[in-house]
Design a protein around this nucleic acid. Structure first.
Length: 276
DNA sequence: ACCCATGTTCTTTG
DNA sequence: TCAAAGAACATGGG
């Protein structure tokens, strides 16, 4: 789940729960998710007060009263939670921050352990170190066009590249390209100005919609492609209406692979580029 | 038992 | 140097 809208939802949760709180202890259940050595992490966190939160793409930052930030990246299966007593700890809690004032524990949950927790000097320093581009909610249409228009690479991998713009993941890129009516295998350099505008508008639309529903895609509008994907294999036999294009009730959504990632398109809305 | 999976990063191949 | 595919990571769930 953790693409930009999920991470923004987590950030808001953390902001309400943890800002103003002092970290009493750092509980490490599985050091695998630590990108900063455990002793350094503990030294940097215990006794510090969380002063605020921010987000860049899929990264969430907890700002600390002495300057550095705690960076959370949720990988493919990361989540955030809170609990009071250890028996109530969510399954797969890998790290927990004990909050001094409320007595709550903030849980970093991650079954598959692709997520990472680290300390960085600042959000900007982390952005530079990881070569992360502008946040997908902040990037302008002109900036996006400038970054894509000289690239002879398939559009879908370009949009997934966090160095171009940060926060778009596999499901969202498919949704964005569907809303913009652009095929994922178009080359960046093949788009015309109008298409860049449509692409930028679609990014804004999809992210704003997802955030407003706290990333609960089951509540997304019927005009969204995601229903074809999510319910693809969970639908009862015989009820396959959701596998058709929201705009073309007789056109089946197609699934195939682009850049190794499962990709869903409407072949009518998103015509393939010539030569494929 | 087998196959798939939301992300990132490295390796290989062309 | 670039583009694209594949693999690796670690594990749960269908």
């Amino acid at each position: 789940m953790p693409e930009l809208p999920e991470v923004e939802t987590y950030r808001r949760f953390i902001d309400e729960l943890a800002v103003g709180q002092t970290i009493a202890a750092v509980q490490v259940n599985d050091a695998h998710v630590l990108a900063t050595p455990e002793d350094q992490l503990r030294a940097g966190l215990v006794g510090r007060t969380i002063t605020g939160t921010s987000r860049l793409g899929k990264n969430c930052f907890l700002e600390l009263d002495n300057g550095p930030v705690l960076v959370l990246h949720f990988g493919m299966t990361g989540d955030i939670g809170a609990y009071r007593d250890e028996p109530d700890a969510p399954r797969f809690t890998r790290v927990a921050l004990h909050l001094e004032d409320s007595g709550l524990r903030l849980a970093f949950i991650d079954p598959r352990k692709f997520g990472r927790i680290r300390l960085a000097a600042s959000a900007a320093a982390h952005q530079a170190a990881k070569k992360i581009g502008p946040d997908a909610l902040q990037i302008t249409a002109a900036e996006l066009q400038q970054k894509l228009s000289r690239r002879k690479t398939l559009l879908k991998p370009l949009l997934l590249d966090q160095g171009i713009t940060a926060g778009l993941g596999n499901w969202i890129v498919d949704e964005v390209l569907f809303q913009a009516r652009i095929h994922p295998e178009r080359l960046g350099s093949s788009l015309i100005e109008k298409e860049f505008k449509a692409l930028h508008a679609a990014i804004q639309l999809v992210l704003a919609t997802a955030i407003s529903h706290e990333a609960n895609y089951r509540h997304f509008p019927k005009s969204f492609l995601i229903h074809a994907r999510e319910w693809d294999d969970s639908a009862a036999p015989g009820s396959d209406a959701h596998t058709f294009c929201p705009r073309h009730p007789k056109v089946k959504i197609e699934k195939y692979y682009v850049g190794g990632r499962a990709t869903y398109i409407c072949p009518r809305c998103q015509p393939a580029p010539a030569g494929t």
